[in-house]
Design a protein around this nucleic acid. Structure first.
Lengths: 335, 335
DNA sequence: ACGGTTCTGGTAAGCGCTTTCCAAAGAAGG
DNA sequence: CCTTCTTTGGAAAGCGCTTACCAGAACCGT
């Protein structure tokens, strides 16, 4: 049993040709190798179970076929759907995706960005909400700048806070449209279940909703940006005794948590209380009552990110806006 | 603007020391560098925005900190949850995860395995059901063998069909237990919504359910292993006019599709028809009626896979069995 | 004062590839 | 038959690191 993998040198020796010839035979270089030698090399490679060392190749070639992806939480369907879109697009281009998940700890973002940078990927995609933390933003920029300066590409899928190409989700607009629709359905006493104060997605969606609401200011309850957060926030809202006839949860997961809380408290959704979410997570399209939400083309967004990242470099960072589409379902019946 | 990234040589020059010293200063080698020089190197590195080239490092060191993960479909919560578990575990070990998704096309598995192999990761994790395709299995083995022979590690999360360490899900047993529970609840006319014939998960779960059912053989309808598959299969089941009082969908996603189909057809779940799934996808824990299912410790499984892959090599492949736990909820009330 | 340690910096040999440059051998042309 | 291309194989120089190995300096005990 070989303690080490067969190298190109081994293959060359086995085939009785030079290293250069072996290299040329095994990867379509423009140089032609005589058919006979070509075959001999291929046979030798198969015999030895040769697999080229991608690291060595990219060193020699000076370029990799890796794309880094940094997400907040890969188990969150929002991100896993984006990841799927990106992975598909990457595959079409013959690229490999390196995945990092901060698992909800934004501090980790820096470290992982560093790790991705070290891998010298062709590009890095940063998916996940920016926060209002200025110093974190500065540190991020400090990492990104030299990477970009030395030929790397970075794309963000988030709010346009970084000086890089960005797929921008129209969170504000989406939430605003949603608010208008819900108001038009006859609701009068809105509440918003928001995420952490410093998460920009949360802020944008909340503010958008408030801006879209024609009259009375909604009650806002904030908690974690997750199912459990929605659950707790809803409980607190009900505890507060605030009079409310509809609830906008900042994302579908929180909306699910909220609906679970309502069930526990005997509040009937949608009869007693309407609920709406944001994202239109595909796994949740079949829940009952069907959730009113704002659909985001998540898979598509993964594709767009790769497009941007592989496209021409421009002087000014490009912004690719993604619009959400309000989908009214049973959870917010006309009142 | 530097056209290329700063290299260690640049840093050494900038700091006025030798390459070796720079190297020793920047990555805790056991060799000590005088404090003054150490600082000078660090300062130079910062000034130049230096980021070590991981590819070059692993070439020189002869080892990487990459782990490959190959899944069937990363947008499927089943896999994204496993991926999250693995990514977490990997992060604890300072490893990076390279993600490949076959997006449901098993043919791609081979190519992607090759890509992962080329990256010379420390290990490769194969998550996703094996199929009954013998020749595919043989080709897979042909890729795996030389990789393992040359010091690589491979772990599968699936049926124990490959000669590698495997996290084995007790699909048969889980489905069997579920069948027994459901039968005990008083149901008498079962149906199974299965996945494709050649998918071993599907086969195991179906057979397990049948084995666990005390009397009359269940009706079996097969379709795609997805929400839409469940939807179509359920429709076909209803079309067939078969008398059925409970349905076991081979996974939660199919169960959701089935419930959606029932809704369309005016079949009340669970009054007219009970439904059960498999996996206990966390995103779906709040649906109504709450889904009876078999819980799998998905995150944990990701961890286990990494443990196996980083553990001691053994002569015989190890099998780590994972048991499912039947969770009875509202979708299968006592009859 | 001197050989023996210990400490620390530098030199250079790789790691596994790609690719440039050179050279040998035919083919083509006069 | 000689010159000039064209074709194709090989030698060797890197790519950016790590890490023996070596060498000088400082320190020790006797």
């Amino acid at each position: 049993m070989a303690a080490r993998a067969a190298t190109l040198t081994d293959v060359a020796k086995e085939a009785g040709v030079s290293l250069a010839t072996a290299s040329r035979a095994l990867n379509g270089s423009d140089r032609v190798v005589r058919a006979e030698l070509h075959e001999r090399v291929l046979a030798a490679a198969t015999r030895l179970g040769y697999s080229p060392n991608a690291q060595a190749q990219s060193m020699a070639r000076g370029s990799t076929d890796l794309v880094g992806l940094l997400v907040n939480d890969i188990s969150d369907p929002y991100f896993s759907t984006i990841a799927a879109g990106l992975a598909n697009a990457a595959e079409e281009q013959g690229l490999l995706v390196m995945l990092c998940s901060t698992a909800g700890r934004p501090e980790r973002e820096l470290e992982l960005l560093g790790a991705l940078r070290r891998q010298r990927g062709r590009a890095i995609v940063l998916a996940g909400s920016r926060t209002s933390d200025r110093s974190h933003l500065r540190e991020l920029t400090a990492q990104i700048e030299p990477f970009v300066a030395s030929g790397g590409r970075v794309v963000a899928i988030s709010e346009p806070k970084l000086q890089v190409d960005t797929v921008v989700v129209a969170n504000r607009k989406g939430a605003q449209d949603l608010a208008a629709e819900i108001a038009a359905l006859g609701y009068r006493k809105p509440a918003v279940l928001a995420g952490p104060e410093d998460l920009l997605v949360s802020k944008d969606r909340r503010d958008g909703f408030i801006a879209g609401w024609p009259s009375r200011e909604p009650v806002v309850v904030a908690d974690e940006f997750s199912r459990d957060g929605g659950f707790r926030a809803m409980h607190r809202l009900l505890d507060s005794g605030a009079e409310v006839d509809c609830v906008f949860a900042i994302n579908d997961l929180m909306a699910m948590g909220a609906m679970a809380a309502c069930r526990e408290r005997g509040v009937d959704v949608p009869r007693d209380l309407a609920v709406a979410g944001f994202d239109d997570i595909s796994t949740l399209r079949d829940v009952t009552p069907a959730l009113t939400t704002v659909r985001l083309p998540l898979t598509e967004m993964g594709h767009m990110a790769l497009d941007l990242v592989l496209g021409e470099r421009t002087v000014k960072p490009r912004r690719r806006k993604v619009q959400g589409e309000v989908i009214v379902r049973e959870s917010t019946p006309p009142r």
